[in-house]
Design a protein around this nucleic acid. Sequence first.
DNA 1: GTTAGCACTCTTTTCCCCTGAGTGCTAAGC
DNA 2: GCTTAGCACTCAGGGGAAAAGAGTGCTAAC
Lengths: 354, 354
Amino acid sequence: MEMTERKKKVLRSVVDLYIRTAEPVGSKAITELPDMNYSSATIRNEMADLLTMGYLEQPHTSAGRIPSAAGYRLYVDELMADYRLSMDETKSINTAIEEKMQQVDRLVEKVAKLVSQATDLPAISMAARRGGATATRFEVIPAGAGSVILVVMLSDEQVLNKLIKLPLSVTQSDLQVLSAVLNATLTGLSPEEFTPELLQKVMNSAGEAASLVPVIMDFTAEALSKQANANVAVAGQMRLLGQPEYRDAKKAQRVLTKLDEDALANLPAVLENGNGTKVLVGPENITQELKDTSVVMTKFDIGDGMQGLIGVVGPTRMDYAKVTARLSYFAESLSKMFAKPEQKQLPGGKDEEA
Amino acid sequence: MEMTERKKKVLRSVVDLYIRTAEPVGSKAITELPDMNYSSATIRNEMADLLTMGYLEQPHTSAGRIPSAAGYRLYVDELMADYRLSMDETKSINTAIEEKMQQVDRLVEKVAKLVSQATDLPAISMAARRGGATATRFEVIPAGAGSVILVVMLSDEQVLNKLIKLPLSVTQSDLQVLSAVLNATLTGLSPEEFTPELLQKVMNSAGEAASLVPVIMDFTAEALSKQANANVAVAGQMRLLGQPEYRDAKKAQRVLTKLDEDALANLPAVLENGNGTKVLVGPENITQELKDTSVVMTKFDIGDGMQGLIGVVGPTRMDYAKVTARLSYFAESLSKMFAKPEQKQLPGGKDEEA
DNA sequence: GTTAGCACTCTTTTCCCCTGAGTGCTAAGC
DNA sequence: GCTTAGCACTCAGGGGAAAAGAGTGCTAAC
């Protein structure tokens, strides 16, 4: 059986209506649409065809039709109308970003929250570094009685610091020697190169302050290997409960629990391939738990070797056009924001307190 | 009517059973308990009394009884058996804390997650500073071409840093002058004291690097006033969905949405008064949305002028004995951990990346 | 003071019937 | 050869009655 234009038109109508109503769509409802100048019988024939072609499903014999996964797929790839964001929408997204993004603290969490608000669905957000960083500069400065502060600059312009309490007293010049040695030996190295032999070597040349070296190297190596890890946040989980398909809490719980575990574990891999917006419809998700759930994600560059990803999770019957449009706009705005030099406040970090 | 020992015993049994089964408790069920050597008729009489006294409620005429808020209150305050944590429980809490708390990143989130796991309920966690901090030391160090790093030490031993790109070039000695001026003028001040006049004064004496001063003062003032704010996290929201009283997603959504908003807004006030474990039963919560929900919280000191709070949210029918026991143990372990100097890794901060 | 007995109340479950939405098919119409 | 009207058929969902079950309240006896 071949796919005619009219079949596509019918399929699109079915998906559109189902997205709006969450109820199986009957032939009559289709005929009542504008631009549908056929009788219900004709539509019924077309729908029967679409059923055998696998684009529609029938919950039971005498019910309307709902899109199958394949139907959604076709809809997403070819059929859905471009959703143009209204002025209001772009404005509210823009102001939200501007208001919330002033402080650089916990950016991924904030982004996730904003995306969730903008789509009224659970959202994930992630930032990850593309390549591994190395240390570019060390500085050890005195910090009052019995303490020094270690400052490490990384190749990606992050700045880390650590307060070290001294078991012994060292002089300012000891620290200068130490800083010089660190800068000479440890810059440009990957975490794997922080071997015990290297530690020995550095300690030998570090003079009086040698006892600080193990702490410093541990800290640096750990920080560097952590770079590779992603920074993931999930927000707005409870919005899933607003969707009629999750009126049953058990069902929602399964999805949300999975989301919690997996967002953190599996997402980094997703970043690897391909840019742009991606839609995973129901069963295309690998895990069984997300069989009735779709994921829409956008990946984008945010400069400085960082990649961002934002995405939302919702029922297969979600408004793909709206969601993808908002998500793309969001991604675009974020990229722009990070590209603007006056907003780029990158390493204005702040310690987590203990 | 007076409260006899037997009445208390019956009340305790009703609450215990209701916590276990989530079903109204009938007189027959009570008689089947060990140590209950009375007939169902006797129990019925006692239950009728407890009903008129307001400790029990009756969903409808021919149903069993469920505890009222007052009933829970009495149960929590007087009746419930001490729950002794098993070796397994203490061990799993301890190892969880040890494993997860190694990195100081995002501590509140991690704690919330752990508490939620330990209790199988949504959890909140918070860390807040008791008094306002001040800056104790400034250091401006060169960081390669056209950049300097500002390091600020706070009175609470946090260390903040910020990378500043220079619009102009300054020499090392300029920076030393600047550091000296900053240390002389800005240490020990509360954020309110960062006035425009002070800014002017500092700039006048800062020499070549004067153009850096506004950025530095803004950053410091903001960091200091942020100190006062609390650091709140919520985790495991979806665990609420496992509770039978929230099988209806709508209900769960109301509570969870409230939790999301309010945990961040209202909790800091809670920290103000009284230490120890506290139970808020259903209607004792101020907000209407939490009427059928109980909150158990523990506040504790974690040294360094910091206070911690952990808590869980669940149905009024929750296992108070178990939850309070686990929560207290958690609080205790955390305090201990933070008190141990070798684990105290306080300002080993790490920047959030953009 | 305690308990057995029993009538009574109310929810929950089950069953049945009916209604309505929607289909599939056939035969007629353009 | 499409398209459409017509009609029999199917099935989910709602309403209501009846039956089942759990538990109470009360009375009278122990």
